[in-house]
Amino acid sequence: MTVVTRDAVTLAPFGVPEPELQYSAGTPAIAAVDLVREYPRKRKDPVRALQGLSLTVAQGEVHGLLGPNGAGKTTLVKILSTILLPTSGQATVCGHDVVRHGRDVRELIGVVMGGDRGLYTRLTGRQNLEFWGALQKVPRKVLRSRTEHLLERLGLAAKADARVETYSRGMKQRLHLARGLIGDARVLFLDEPTMGMDPVAAREFRKLIGELRDEQRTILLATHDMTEAESLCDRVSFVRDGTVVATRSPHAVAGLVSAVQGLELDSADAALAATLAEVPGVTSVTTDGATTRILVRSQDDFPRLLHLLADHGVTSLRTLRPSLEDVYVRLIGDRGLEV
């Protein structure tokens, strides 16, 4: 019997966890330990936006932060970029403490917050970049060519000399990204950077992140876009209620819920489907034209299922691996719109 995964790779024994990605030893680019951040509220207990969050990101890693609204992603990014002090806990960027040596941290980082605010709207895109570059202490000659390069790379060259107030939202977001890159930062914090970008721009953005990774930059990327996280990140962390609930490579996240979620057969035999539905551990069986999809509760239910299928002469099947989105929903819980 051949067992073929959806991406046509032979799946040896079920449920073997993929090894964690290995990174060069040495000082991590980002290390957060037990971070707590409370926001005071009037006549109420303070909100605990972070409740003992720990996270390590290696040099050169692209690390995704996934989690529902209000999980604490932005709060974490703010603390790491020294805009916000933690209530307790510790964090370092390239070995520099964000509280005690904020100044050193600020020399190394680039920050891009989602949304279209934070630009000088009466100035042109080029002027914005040149100004921020000066603040980032980029030498003058370098600044000129880098500005040109970034405008080109982000598709803003045609609008470079128009005032930012005439930009569309996605163009402002691109300019923000260029602004975050103007200082040649080693560590980049991107908080929902593709918010408001059209699909083509978002794809260009992904290409750009790939290039930045090739340049050995470290990127912490908070996003709600699963495709983005899946295609860009070396690892992702799921953040819920101010803590990291799991960190994996996007390809290994499936192992968090179960390596294989179910099976798909090239047969739509109604009798077989009925039999399968009776097997303990099978949660659903659906037939659709020429295929049958079987979902199981856990890994342990597979051996029995496979035996049964073999007995029925089924020789070809595919495993259904959960997507990052499936994992996200299972891990974070389907809380609807509640925050």
Binding site: S81, I83, L119, Q136
Partner: peptide, 13 residues
């Protein structure tokens, strides 16, 4: 109002 303050605060100047 332009919202540049947090970005300035995250910069080296």
């Amino acid at each position: 109002n332009a919202g540049t303050l947090p970005l300035l605060a995250a910069g080296p100047t």
